[in-house]
């Protein structure tokens, strides 16, 4: 009798759990609640730790590690002079570019304002299956789900979920990350997919005869409307022929490494979409699996890559 009751209790509990789990997957209510309460609490703890760490390292940097500051200052001044000379030389080119665009009536994408944010932690807890970082900004300070995140070196990823003052960013290297890119010299389009932590990125859907060389930069293409055009993302590290899609067409196998030093990130920028800019078709951040060429590659999908991939998880 007792065993029977126990079995019924376990079965009912499991049914209840599966009900709640399925309901949450459809609505995301529990996830939003956990992001507002649990993520905020964790963010508060990490901010406290960060403040303690900053005061200790600040003391070290301000009072102890002053040796060599004069030499460093001289070197930096020389570097500033050099950069000022370069800036002066390129300002004439920029003015000419603006003039030519006006002549051709060419609308150029508006600049996306950037808001700085501090990295509080890497992936934390047993529930952190994805390759993520935690930021000190939430949706109240411009870190809504789907917001692009960059560092001074290049693209970092996109905000996966956000509480009021803390957010979690899906990194470029995660297997669920997709970015629409083009090569800086050959202007070849493709979708840059994460290979997992410690593994190279993969550039997908590039035809066999495309002019791609090792060392070339990959920049955002802007066609997905997720990132502004022209932000450096990665550098090509290997190109090999012999790949093929499921439909049998020949493709290049291209590997790349992120430009941003992801394990050492301390501060990042959250890019804010300017008013009037085209919004992406979907706010999906996590792509479950590589889009199949049989259903249409990037060109057939309107070039939207991540935004129009078939199986996607909405940014929460």
């Amino acid at each position: 009798m007792l065993h029977r009751r126990l079995a019924i209790l376990i079965a009912c509990s499991l049914m209840l759990f599966l009900g709640v789990y399925t309901w949450n997957q459809r609505t995301g209510h529990w996830d939003r609640l956990c992001a507002s309460v649990g993520l905020e609490f964790t963010g508060g703890v990490m901010r406290g730790l960060d403040a303690v760490e900053s005061s200790v390292t600040g003391f070290w940097e301000n009072y102890v590690a002053l040796r060599g500051v004069k030499q460093r200052n001289d070197a930096l001044e020389r570097r500033v002079q050099e950069l000022e000379m370069r800036l002066a030389a390129s300002s004439e080119d920029l003015a000419e570019l603006a003039r030519l665009r006006r002549m051709l009536h060419l609308d150029y994408p508006m600049a996306w304002p950037a808001a700085a944010s501090r990295v509080l932690a890497r992936r934390m807890g047993p529930n952190a299956a994805l390759d993520t970082i935690m930021l000190s900004s939430g949706y109240l300070s411009g870190a809504a789900a789907g917001t692009p995140v960059t560092s001074w070196q290049g693209v970092v990823g996109r905000v996966l979920k956000a509480g009021p003052g803390t957010s979690v960013v899906l990194l470029l290297t995660d297997t669920g990350s997709r970015v629409s890119v083009l090569t800086s010299e050959g202007r070849v389009q493709g979708i840059l997919a994460g290979g997992g932590p410690g593994h190279p990125l993969e550039l997908l859907f590039v035809r066999q005869n495309a002019p791609v060389r090792v060392g070339e930069l990959l920049v955002t293409s802007g066609v997905d409307s997720v990132y502004p055009k022209g932000i450096p993302v990665a550098r090509v590290t290997a190109v090999s022929r012999g790949g093929s899609s499921r439909s049998g067409s020949s493709l290049l196998e291209i590997q790349a490494e992120p430009l941003a030093d992801l394990p050492m990130l301390e501060e990042v920028f959250l890019l804010q979409r300017p008013a009037g800019a085209i919004a992406p078709g979907s706010d999906a951040v996590y792509t479950r699996r590589a889009p199949s060429l049989e259903k249409g590659g990037p060109a057939e999908q309107g070039g939207n890559g991540a935004a129009q991939a078939p199986d996607v998880r909405s940014g929460r």
Partner: peptide, 21 residues
């Protein structure tokens, strides 16, 4: 604790709840 773990994680809600249960 469930709320904190689920909040800082990146999977859908449920794993920590089941584990703690």
């Amino acid at each position: 604790f469930t709320m904190a773990q689920e909040g800082m994680g990146s999977m859908f809600f449920g794993g920590t709840l089941l584990w703690y249960a």
